[in-house]
Deep mutational scan, measured.
Amino acid sequence: ELKPWIEKTVKRVLGFSEPTVVTAALNCVGKGMDKKKAADHLKPFLDDSTLRFVDKLFEAVEEGRSSR
């Protein structure tokens, strides 16, 4: 259920769609990584945008959990 949101956010942050980043982000969430681990995992794909993306990712995960 997070996938469409992650795809949109990747496109907004990077300026283009990147399926590799979407898959990696879903893996981070699925494995229950904390922000630091997720950022380390995604840094090779996102460079300077990593922290901004990870912040948005974790906000969305929290919103998703609290709306259930």
Results as ranks from 00 to 15, higher is better:
K11W: 03
L2C: 02
S49M: 12
G32M: 07
M33Y: 09
H41Q: 08
K43C: 02
E18I: 06
K43L: 06
V10E: 02
L57H: 12
D55H: 04
P4W: 04
C28N: 02
G30M: 15
T50P: 03
G64M: 15
S17Q: 09
F16C: 13
K8I: 00
S66N: 11
D40Q: 09
N27D: 14
R65Q: 10
D47C: 12
L46E: 04
V13Y: 10
A25F: 02
F45M: 09
D47E: 13
N27R: 08
R52C: 12
S17E: 10
V29S: 03
E63Q: 10
G32D: 08
V10S: 02
D47S: 13
F16G: 06
A39G: 06
V13K: 04
R68E: 13
T9Q: 12
E1A: 00
S17L: 13
K43R: 13
D48W: 04
M33F: 11
V21Q: 04
V13N: 00
F53Q: 05
V29P: 01
K3H: 03
S17W: 06
H41E: 11
L42K: 02
K43I: 03
K36P: 08
S49T: 09
K35I: 00
P19F: 00
K35R: 09
E18Y: 13
D34C: 10
R65W: 06
H41R: 08
R52G: 13
D40H: 09
V54A: 06
R68I: 11
K56C: 12
A39W: 04
R52Q: 13
V21H: 03
V21Y: 00
C28V: 15
V61N: 06
F58V: 09
S67I: 09
T9S: 03
A39E: 08
D48V: 05
S49A: 13
E7S: 05
V13I: 12
P44G: 06
L57P: 07
G15C: 01
S67H: 11
D40W: 08
E63K: 10
R12C: 02
T50E: 05
E59C: 05
C28Q: 00
T9C: 03
G32H: 08
L57M: 10
L46Q: 04
L46W: 04
T50C: 07
D48R: 10
F53Y: 02
R68T: 11
L42Q: 07
S17M: 10
H41N: 07
S49C: 09
E1I: 03
F45V: 04
R68A: 14
D34E: 05
T50Y: 02
A24D: 00
D34L: 05
G15P: 09
E7P: 00
V10L: 14
V13D: 00
P44R: 10
K56H: 11
R12A: 15
S49I: 12
E7T: 10
R68N: 13
R52P: 15
V21T: 08
L57D: 06
T23I: 03
T9M: 13
E18N: 15
K56T: 08
V61C: 06
S66V: 11
W5T: 14
K56G: 09
H41A: 13
S66G: 13
K35F: 09
L26I: 10
R68M: 12
K8L: 04
D40R: 09
T9W: 03
E1G: 05
F53N: 03
G32A: 07
S67L: 10
D34I: 02
G30R: 15
T20S: 11
K37S: 13
T20Y: 07
L26M: 11
G32E: 07
K35L: 00
R12H: 13
P44M: 04
V54W: 01
R68V: 13
G64S: 13
K37H: 07
R12S: 14
K8H: 03
I6T: 01
E18F: 04
L51R: 10
T50R: 06
L42P: 04
V29N: 03
A38Q: 03
L57A: 08
P19G: 06
P4I: 15
G64E: 13
V54P: 06
E63R: 12
L57F: 09
K3P: 01
S49H: 14
K35A: 03
S17Y: 12
E1L: 02
G30S: 15
W5H: 12
E18D: 15
R52F: 15
K37N: 08
V10K: 02
K35M: 01
V21L: 14
N27F: 03
F58K: 02
F53H: 04
F16Q: 12
V21M: 01
M33P: 00
V21R: 02
F16A: 11
L14E: 00
V54M: 03
V10G: 00
F45A: 06
A60W: 09
E7Y: 05
E18L: 04
E63Y: 09
L2G: 00
D48A: 11
V29M: 11
D55L: 00
D34Q: 04
L42T: 01
G64L: 14
M33W: 14
G64Y: 14
V21A: 05
K43P: 03
K8R: 09
K36M: 09
K11G: 01
H41F: 12
E18P: 09
L46C: 09
P19Q: 08
D40L: 07
R68S: 11
L57R: 07
R68L: 15
I6F: 00
P44F: 01
M33L: 10
V54R: 05
A38S: 06
A38R: 01
L57C: 12
K8C: 03
A25G: 00
K11C: 07
V54G: 04
E18R: 11
S17G: 05
P44C: 06
